[in-house]
Amino acid sequence: MSRLSAAVPVEEYLAESHVLFYLGDAVNQLLEHKEEYTQFGLIRYFAEYFSSVKNSNHVLFREFNYIRATPHNKASFIRVFWRCFRQIGKSGELLSVQDYRSLLQLLCPDFSMEVVQSAARIVLMDDATDCLMSFSDFIYAFQLQFYYQEFLESVLVIYQDLLAGKSPNTVFVPTSALVEQLPSVVVEENDKEEPQRDGVEACLLADCVDALCDRFKHSHPSRACVREILDQTDKVSYYSFLMSLAKHEAINQSIGALPSRAELFFDPEMDQELDKLIAQISVSPGSNSSGSAVGGLKEVQRRASPRRNIHHRRKMEVESDGSTEETDSSEN
């Protein structure tokens, strides 16, 4: 509890903590399931809701829009994904984009394919996106893509502008020196090797990204890390830049969802806990009438919001009697 923070205006304090978002969601959930929660006890319901937000298990089986609504939700989801499917990585199995997407949809039925594909492009450097990927490669790329999605989209626009020889199409104008440099650099490059499309001046990109950070308040990787990465090379392509960001340990730490790469599969304590979770989840698809699945889920549900149970069941129906095509159509 810090006394100094009293200096921050109330609105700012509320906005930074996303408290109003969670309150709104809690009330919406309540309205959708009035009967249940009234029996449950309203105060108890709010207590459970906020405890689950605090403990990061509030994102289980929630809709995509909820999962990506706040940085805390994003980080929580990344962590849940890691916790649930770490075993796959441990076994060293390589999976395709479709596989990863299916795993994600087990946790979030309407998880966006676009995010998964973008993450795969980072891993595979935009080459053949039908290749197989290791779990650890994927999860860090996925983390970067999912957590900083809006920021990365803007970086891509800048990158493409730089590549095309335009000055970045944004409000922040680089210093005049840069503008002068810009066209010549690209022309030179185009002259040299037309087919090789990767590469803009790393320092140019660094300046532009730095300016971009100003607009993104907190939701961007630290400037120091960006600088560090871009200082290492003269030329950089969008995806190699992203790959470096994904692999950067300081960025990983600041998101705070995943352990370092070396410890990704090392957590004996959690192995046990995980076995339970996986048991609960793996029972679900296909076994519609299984009473034990519902029983097992009760435990998850008690810690998270009761709503998730229903959500999960609804999802199970879609999955269980439908082929992949059907899941696809449900998304469109």
Binding site: S5, L23, V27, F46, A47, F50, V53, K54
Partner: peptide, 30 residues
Amino acid sequence: DLLRGALLKMVEARSDDPIGFLADHFCNLA
């Protein structure tokens, strides 16, 4: 009333961890 009370408490205390504060607050009330 319930939420207003909670928000007022929270803004009053300016906890560094507002979500945790609300969780504790409601648990306490419960």
